[in-house]
Design a protein around this nucleic acid. Structure first.
Length: 587
RNA sequence: GUCCCCGUAGCUCAGCAGGAUAGAGCAACGGAUUCCUAAUCCGUAGGUCGGAGGUUCGAAUCCUCUCGGGGACGCCA
């Protein structure tokens, strides 16, 4: 079922065609000037340019043609040649009932579903999750929900960073602290303790320590590189340590991700593809894609058309170790064998643009993937209120878990302030607080345009006023409350009959859902969903304030409004679900 | 040095393929609750869209230059 915009575009397009003008010029959009009309078409001016005619005359002819067609709308010509279109109430009513009868309130599935994978560019095993990790988690999760909603077959992979030099740093730093552990004894090749020698706090301490030392001292760095190479070559003690590091790290990560309500199909990591690396390297050599340079094996990926010089990808370092790019390539091979995706989305910050450009080109060059089958869904950095990048080593950075807890504290306070604590059981209260905190965190992150940097301001993050997640939950809960009361009173929703301006405005917003979902999918843009959710909630506010539902005496009108409210709720829950937010029963 | 991204109201940000008077939220000020949840709603005020050229009937949007901020540039991830 086409949306109003689509139906109008078709009608106006037909009118253009009837005048022997391109039908595409009939494209109708929501108006910039809702005080004139809710919809507009600017095609007459473009047509005038092409045909070298007077735009107003063309617009006038279109308007006359449309009037002759007896369509369910008012058409006016304004300014230099704008066509202002105003559907009548019957058109809104018809559309509203169509949307209401659809489980998805008008949202289509993709015409050609894809098999696709989402790579969350996982957190590093060596480091605890900090606020910088929020973006890939929240954006990636939104995308996996959105893509599934569109009917794509999605497999998500957290893809932990558990294989590079950072592991060498951890191993050598731990060796310095606890040299007597059996893992470091070259003679011992098995029977290692099953208890991990470190906690997550140890891990988060060891890595920065080692990294700082290595920066000052090349010899110290060389030790880590050597350990990395030995680990990758399969030294038993190091492999046993790695297994501990990963297990400890995953346990901690699962807590954070569960707290956020983010889930992955696969908990793979870079270390999982180690066995494939020799094959990838041999394959690249055989195909003549890789070559020696300064003791390393590299792939030249620069192209003549490049504006900037892209460095070659380093497949094997001069120390003999696989690097970040190598494991990414091996992972592409693994995924091709196990999942065979048509598209892989990498949800990783934009600082790694060059890296992915290198990997993608190398993969295409070697025939590991089809051109266009790999896509970097990049996002901006998280900055502090001083506008500078929030870094792990900056000192002031706090953990993601702390952020979540602070948001929850704030949510509990607000619930209490509003006097809502008393009505709920302790469990209910806590679950609402959790849900509200998540909504606040996710919405404030996702409502930013993905590719821009944004300023992380805790106060703003946990403020629940205005354009926020909790506001949207509140609106939804309010509708739930009305519907619950209606049920209690034995009231049934009925056919929607639009009679007031606020009802028409609400129908227009509901009608825009499909376009928003499609645009969000096309641009991988969660903020479009946020925008739609907020506009919908605002339209409902206008409706709520001006159109009594339960107090309405006219039975038919009441039933109509009840259905409009129920449809709004359904769509709100759908779109908030895509964002990753829950809607409590009451709050 | 080369390349990429950003610069819109006091603050944080939208602005989709060039269209009419550039929109939200916060903060400020003024209102609204005998009525379905006031985490709400309505109103007021606030902008040389960093700057200068250019293309166009028409530019925040496209092109060039320039200033300011951020980032990336062969063995870290």
């Amino acid at each position: 079922m086409p949306s109003l915009v689509e139906a109008l575009s078709r009608d106006v397009g037909a009118a253009f065609a009837a005048l022997e003008l391109p039908a595409e010029l009939g494209r109708v959009v929501e108006s910039d000037r809702p005080d004139f009309a809710p919809y507009q078409c600017n095609g007459a001016m473009a047509a005038a340019k092409q045909a070298k005619r007077n735009p107003r005359e063309i617009a006038q002819s279109i308007a006359e043609k449309l009037a002759a067609d007896h369509l369910s709308m008012k058409v006016e010509v304004a300014g230099p040649g704008f066509l202002n279109l105003t559907p009548d109430d019957a058109a809104y009513s018809t559309q509203a009932n169509v949307l209401a009868s659809d489980e998805r309130t008008g949202a289509d599935s993709a015409a050609h579903p894809l098999k696709l994978m989402i790579d969350f560019g996982g957190p590093n095993v060596a480091k605890p999750m900090h606020v910088g990790h929020l973006r890939s988690s929240v954006i990636g999760d939104c995308l996996q929900r959105l893509m599934r909603f569109r009917g794509h077959d999605v497999v998500s992979d957290i893809h932990l960073g558990d294989w590079g030099l950072q592991m060498g740093h951890l191993i050598t730093e731990l060796e310095d602290e606890q040299p007597d552990l059996p893992y470091f004894d070259g003679e011992v090749t098995g029977g290692y303790p099953s208890e991990p020698p470190v906690t997550i706090d140890d891990l988060s301490r060891l890595y920065p320590q080692a990294s700082a030392k290595a920066k000052e001292d090349p010899a110290r760095n060389e030790r880590s590189r050597k350990a990395t190479a030995e680990l990758q070559a399969g030294r038993p003690g190091y492999r046993a340590l790695l297994a501990h590091f990963i297990a400890v790290s995953i346990a901690a990560l699962k807590e954070d991700f569960n707290a956020l309500g983010v889930h992955f199909d696969l908990w793979k990591g870079e270390s999982d593809v180690n066995d494939l690396i020799p094959e990838v390297v041999a394959d690249f050599k055989a195909k003549g894609v890789a070559e020696e340079s300064d003791g390393a094996l590299i792939v030249r990926v620069a192209r003549d058309s490049d504006k900037k010089e892209l460095a070659p990808l380093i497949l094997v370092s001069s120390a003999g170790a696989a690097l970040y790019a190598t494991t990414d390539l091996a992972t592409i091979l693994e995924r091709r064998r196990e999942q065979d995706p048509q598209l892989i989305l990498y949800v990783v910050d934009l600082g790694q643009s060059d890296h992915f450009e290198q990997v993608f080109r190398a993969a295409y060059k070697a025939g590991l993937a089809q051109e266009g089958g790999l896509e970097h869904v990049k996002f901006g950095t998280v900055n502090g209120t001083d506008g500078k990048r929030l870094r792990t080593r900056a000192g002031g950075t706090f953990k993601l878990a702390d952020l979540i807890e602070q948001a929850r504290d704030r949510a509990r306070d607000r619930l209490n302030e509003a006097g809502l604590g008393a009505e709920l059981s302790k469990d209910e209260f806590e679950s609402v607080a959790v849900s509200v905190a998540n909504a606040a965190i996710k919405f404030s992150d996702l409502s930013n345009v993905r590719t821009t940097n944004y300023i992380f301001d805790l106060d703003r993050f946990v403020s629940f006023e205005g354009k926020t997640g909790p506001y949207l939950q509140y609106q939804s809960v309010r509708i739930k409350s009305i519907l619950r009361k209606a049920t209690d009173q034995g009231l049934e929703p009925g056919e929607i009959v639009v009679g007031k301006a606020e009802e028409a405005a609400l129908v227009r917003r509901l009608d825009g859902f499909n376009a928003a979902v499609i645009r969000a999918e096309r641009d991988r843009a969660p903020n479009v969903l946020c925008e739609h959710a907020y506009n919908l909630a605002q339209a409902f506010s206008g409706f709520y304030a001006n159109c009594p539902i339960l107090p309405e005496k006219d039975e038919a009108i009441r039933a109509s409004r009840l259905k409009l409210a129920a449809t709004t709720l359904r769509q709100l829950e759908l779109v908030l679900g895509l964002i990753g937010m829950d809607v409590p029963e009451r709050m």
